[in-house]
Simulated scan of single mutants.
Amino acid sequence: MDFQFDYQMFESPLVGFAWQTWSDARGGSFMSAAAAQCEMVITRYRGELTVHLRGPETKASPAPIPEEAEFLGITFKLGTFMPHLPTETLVDGDALLPLTAGERAFWLNGSAWEVPTFDNADVFVRRLERQGLIARDPVVDAALAGRAAGVSPRSLQRRFLRATG
């Protein structure tokens, strides 16, 4: 199974890009590469919708591909996290976000959010930023850039773990 991806880059300091792809009638599986950042993945399969927040992956692992499914992903930059959802709980896993009754939206931090599309993913990300649902720690940013963070090594370690899992 070969994937063909469409990408949309972001100007945001929190989000790298959005991607979309489709699977064919064969389905199958692929090796999901280890990744340091989190992402939101929306899947449409046989009329069903799922919204997952995926955490960092410490190793490559096989992932199933359902036949004739559509996928949309929003990949966060390293160090971006959701303050209400500890990143360390997502390492090598994910969180299924519940859908609303009409299945056109999902619940995130107590509010209903319209399911984004590839064409409006940038608007969705800006809303997440404005609502404070995704964030970056300036101390972690400084450390990632190789600058002095101005905190003790133990504080840097705690803050880095919170932001990156």
Rank of each mutant, 00 (worst) to 15 (best):
F106S: 12
T75L: 01
G73D: 01
A63K: 03
V41Q: 10
E11G: 13
E70V: 01
G55W: 03
H84L: 09
D92C: 08
G110M: 01
G16H: 06
F106G: 11
I42D: 10
Q37V: 03
Q37A: 09
Y45Q: 14
T100F: 04
V41Y: 08
Q8N: 05
G28Y: 09
R44W: 14
L14P: 02
I65V: 15
I65Y: 10
S61T: 09
H52P: 01
S29R: 07
Y45C: 15
L49V: 15
D6Y: 07
Y7D: 07
L49P: 03
L53E: 04
F30L: 07
E88L: 05
W19S: 11
G79A: 05
E68Q: 14
R26H: 11
Y45N: 15
H52N: 15
L99F: 08
V91T: 12
Q8G: 09
E70Y: 15
P56L: 00
G16T: 00
A36P: 06
P13H: 00
R104M: 06
L97Q: 03
E39Q: 06
T58L: 10
A18V: 13
A36G: 12
L97A: 06
T43M: 05
C38V: 00
G47T: 14
A95D: 05
A25Q: 14
L49S: 07
T100A: 14
F30Q: 05
T89H: 04
L97W: 11
P62Y: 03
I65S: 07
Q4N: 04
A60H: 10
R26Y: 08
T50Y: 05
F17C: 08
L53N: 02
L49H: 11
T80K: 05
F30Y: 15
D24H: 09
W22Q: 15
D24Q: 09
S61L: 04
I65R: 05
E48V: 12
D6N: 10
W19E: 11
P86M: 02
T87Q: 02
T75K: 01
E39H: 13
A36L: 01
F76E: 01
T75M: 02
L78V: 10
E68Y: 09
A95Q: 08
P98K: 00
S12H: 07
I74Y: 14
S12P: 12
G55Q: 02
C38W: 00
R46E: 15
A105F: 06
F5H: 12
F10M: 08
E68G: 11
R44L: 13
G79K: 01
